[in-house]
Amino acid sequence: MNEAIVIENVTKRFGDVVAVNDLSLRVPKGCIYGFLGPNGAGKTTTIRMIMSIFYPDEGTITVLGNPDAERIKDRLGYLPEEKGLYKKMKLGEIVAYFGRLKGMDKQTSKSRAENLLKQYNLGEWIDKKCEALSKGMSQKVQILGTIVHDPELVILDEPFSGLDPVNVEIMREVILQMKREGRTVIFSTHIMEQAEQICDFIFLINKGVKVLDGTLAQVKAGHQRGILLDYDGDLAFLKSNHGIQRINDSGKQAEIFLNEGVDPQQILARLVNNVVIRRFDLREPSLHEIFIRAVGGISDE
């Protein structure tokens, strides 16, 4: 049993809308798996089906070797996209309460909640009510509530949304720590850079259909290489250049894809004359590009 989750030919319809269409996916144990896709692609529906909040219309889902996730809920941790806390409960109480709902006993959940809160710099807040928290802090508390019972599999729906860079860093550390401990982490996001930085595996879904899945390397392999450019100036002159296939221009950074047979040196030469170059890197395409191509329906050929 090396798979944490096995999804086989799962379809889910909401009336006439097919939210997830004939999806198959294997999530190996002990990895960080990123669920990517634009808004409304079916990420949350897939996650809810894994958590058995929804049931699939067709197909089967096996979680931790068990076809019925209802029975192993205690071994899962889930942070939904829409997160909330009981405003009137104290931090220590609510984290412990989440632990107890996962079957921990009173004493263990209490001490574990306190340890976690202290560990993540919320020690002074243990006896404060949740209504006093800032958004970032309450999100941290919610994540602690998700992992308080040391789940084998953690599913985080948009865990980074609404966090400042410091907290994003802490969040990332939590995820990596769980991986080190041998747990499986699934998280969904529509920000590709985040996924690219920490994911072992990637699953890309659009309009309910799986676009691609696999390790980061597998996903990138077979895609046309591009030029990563850091620059100062204006790239407008390049856009009319016949050798250029596409430019994803962010203002200070751009990703440039060339038509087949065009020599990157040529482009470099033109760039040198027009803008200040800080980096010129010929490499595999970014996830962002892969995402746009897949979703936008642009083929490599």
């Binding site: 909040i53 209802e70 809920k73 205690d74 941790g77 889930y78 942070l79 909330g84 989440f98 709902l101």
Partner: peptide, 16 residues
Amino acid sequence: EEKSNRIIEVLLSSIS
């Protein structure tokens, strides 16, 4: 309140 709080889904991941 629980519904508008969005806490319901967290609870549903632990209990039916």
